[in-house]
Design a protein around this nucleic acid. Structure first.
Lengths: 236, 236
DNA sequence: TTTTGTTTTTTGTGATCACAAAATGCAAAC
DNA sequence: GTTTGCATTTTGTGATCACAAAAAACAAAA
């Protein structure tokens, strides 16, 4: 049998007016997004209910919601697991991210005013601070916030939830990159993106975003390293 | 108050091994996809439970799943409705469809063999037959099957469920096009797509798919007509 | 040691109920 | 006619329970 592995999940406070289901969803989503649960780990209603201190019902709804966003996977036996990964699927996810996010960025460009630009610059500073402190969880969160703010500048935008679904599917592998992210001295392309926004240069923005995404997964290095990561995660 | 409008939904048989929730989901999804429920219509657990002859529980799960795919919308008061539409949002949905589906088609192209090609040709014939019989529901279903088969030729494909989410969001407006689809003598671009596939011509395929999608909504004609449609649906 | 068959436990599904919040219906007042 | 206030009904949420299927644990046989 597999080791139980005690499920180290970041619990937040439940705000007023938030239903239990919504809170459970947010907690589990954050855990997946930040790679706190390894691929292949199976999740049961009663175990999570115990860990989060609620009845199985809200867990059920939250797990189902995450499953339909492909953050989790319902297997044939109805067991719910964090999806496993293949090198080809990983590549598809990255390429789809690039296609969808450059699309969203370009269509948001006309709506970006000075207020939004300032907030983007502010978030970019937060990312640098978090990275300097080697705070992985915070770096990921702020990085997502940067992209999210950019795309939602378009008030008619419909693609964010598609994009977030891709983030969720790649999430479990962000943890595996923790060790390598330092040695590789990864730097993002947000400065180039901001510059492109200031000049209202759609082509430059497209280039910046696609480079940002592609280089963000450069820690993978070679297909061999990715394959090693996948094998590693499959042990549990 | 609004008229109750008796909810005319196509009920199918429930196969063995399919859970009640899955069956309810399939039925409601098909209803939304084919525009059998008008935008703005609010759906309640107990009403649907009565119509489908099941307990409220599976309805609850199915509605939640459809909501997280943006096929339905959970309002602030927790009431679940078929989403309303704006002209700008409609446009965004179409453009996102084009971006995502051309991406999926191009990445599927290397995997299309003669077997798949034959099945695509077969489905295309089905579409023509259904259209000749003015069978709207069947035309829509076969058209989706054509696109779905094309994209899933790529075994590593991850974008289909994103694409289907867009189909679901546009679904409620397919019914509104029923009257106009005949007079406009709409024809699809599937022949061009098949030709491009035979020649392994990615650029031609991209053009065929994007034209197919764009012209598929040409019945909208002008923003004024779309606006009229939206106003019309808002009455209920 | 490995395999096979049987028992026990745990699992998700779905039904039912209690409850607070929201929607509705209806009457009195302007 | 229109608005305002209150009583009634209906709503989704979440807890609890029964149940069949799957998983796990264990025992007997090779």
């Amino acid at each position: 049998m597999n080791t139980p592995l005690p499920l180290d999940i970041t619990l937040t406070d439940r705000k007023d007016g938030v239903t239990i289901t919504e809170w459970v969803y947010a907690v589990l989503r954050h855990a997946v997004m930040c790679g706190q649960i390894l691929p292949g780990r199976s999740l049961t209603l009663r175990e999570l209910a115990k860990v989060l201190g609620v009845s199985p019902m809200p867990i059920r709804e939250a797990l189902k919601k995450l499953s339909s966003e492909h953050a989790l996977e319902v297997k044939e036996n109805r067991r719910i697991i964090v999806p496993t990964m293949t090198a080809m699927k990983f590549n598809e996810l990255c390429e789809t991210r690039i296609t969808l996010e450059t699309h969203a960025a370009i269509r948001a460009l006309p709506y970006i005013n000075s207020t939004i630009l300032e907030r983007l610059e502010s978030i970019d500073k937060d990312i640098d601070i978090a990275r300097d402190k080697d705070d992985m969880e915070s770096t990921i969160t702020h990085n997502h916030a940067f992209h999210r703010l950019l795309y939602t500048a378009n008030p008619h935008q419909v693609s964010l939830h598609l994009i977030e679904s891709l983030w969720l599917q790649l999430g479990p592998f962000l943890r595996l990159s923790t060790e390598r992210i330092k040695e590789n001295y990864t730097i993002d392309r947000h400065q180039e993106a901001l510059q492109a926004i200031r000049h209202k240069d759609a082509l430059a923005l497209q280039l910046a975003i696609s480079s940002d995404i592609r280089e963000g997964f450069a820690f993978i290095g070679t297909p061999e390293i990715l394959h090693h990561f996948i094998q590693e995660s499959a042990k549990y």
